[in-house]
Design a protein around this nucleic acid. Structure first.
Lengths: 152, 152
DNA sequence: GAGCATAAATTGAAGATTCAACTAATCTTC
DNA sequence: GAAGATTAGTTGAATCTTCAATTTATGCTC
């Protein structure tokens, strides 16, 4: 095993800032959504993806990929969302194994309300306090990260 | 309630890339640390902070702040790390309420081994695949985010 | 220094996530 | 078209996190 290629001081500083900052930012978003709308960030993400899908529905597997969640986690979370009446599940015509998750009208309304507050939080704690060019850099960085991860 | 100030297309794209990419990146880091060293990212972070503290020890509250974890979560996680022999807890001379978490020699060794692999992962999935200037932008962004959060 | 508010840390229960096992349906290929 | 392999999705148990309550000690104020 060769000597590892440690990060230099600048890289270390920036990586650390990201690690700490992103944890805290998620925490802020989570608390905000939870106290004001009773939704966790991951539940919110599920509603968002469904709301953007054709007919407001997606197959479970597709939704899982889309929302960066495991199948199992999505199953559990969807059960909760279903019992809140925000999502409903139905069978899939073509494939009898398949299940569609569908955003209900109540789910759409809940998302509508939540997103109005959420965008203000995203602005207040990120978008509005940084240089727009830096936000674009963040976008480039994490697009590259996802591409790299998908490449395996 | 006035009309919310929605993100424009570019902001939306970049924010989304961050949300998705950071979740997946954390997942990669977590899986890597867990399969190769039996540590979660948050356990790893605790060991890192302790290793850098004077005498390799910190008060619980200080460690919690440092590692961006709640007191309660830190208590539980430290119990686990303690049972693995990586951390030990001792009382605090000046303040009888206080508790010091101390990195054991075994903990230091485990961290040493883990960090050698971890840095390669950080490089492979982030640092080495992006423009260095963009990494600096990420650093600036999340430094600003933390400052904003600390401001309340 | 007694009484009351605050702070440090832990605890146990409730809630969420991961992991491995499982069911059921589809695809493959011989 | 039957056998075996793969895919979709769920389930329950184990693990981890959050939340509220508790314990113990300190600080403050009169």
């Amino acid at each position: 095993m060769s000597e590892p290629r440690w990060l230099d001081a600048t890289q270390q500083r920036d990586w650390r800032a990201y690690v700490d900052g992103s944890v805290r930012l998620t925490e802020v978003m989570d608390r905000d959504l939870k106290t004001r709308h009773g939704l966790s960030v991951s539940e919110y993400e599920i509603l968002v993806r469904l709301s953007e899908a054709p007919e407001r529905r997606l197959r479970m597997a597709e939704l899982a990929d889309n929302a960066s969640q495991s199948r199992s986690r999505l199953s559990h979370t969807c059960s909760r969302l279903e019992s809140k009446g925000l999502v409903s599940r139905g069978s899939c015509p073509g494939d009898k194994r398949g299940v569609y998750a569908h955003l209900t009208d109540a789910g759409f309304d809940a998302l509508d309300r939540a997103s109005r507050d959420h965008v203000e939080t995203v602005r207040a704690f990120l978008v509005d306090i940084i240089d727009p060019a830096d936000l674009e850099a963040v976008g480039r960085v994490f697009t590259a990260v996802m591409k790299r991860i998908d490449a395996g």
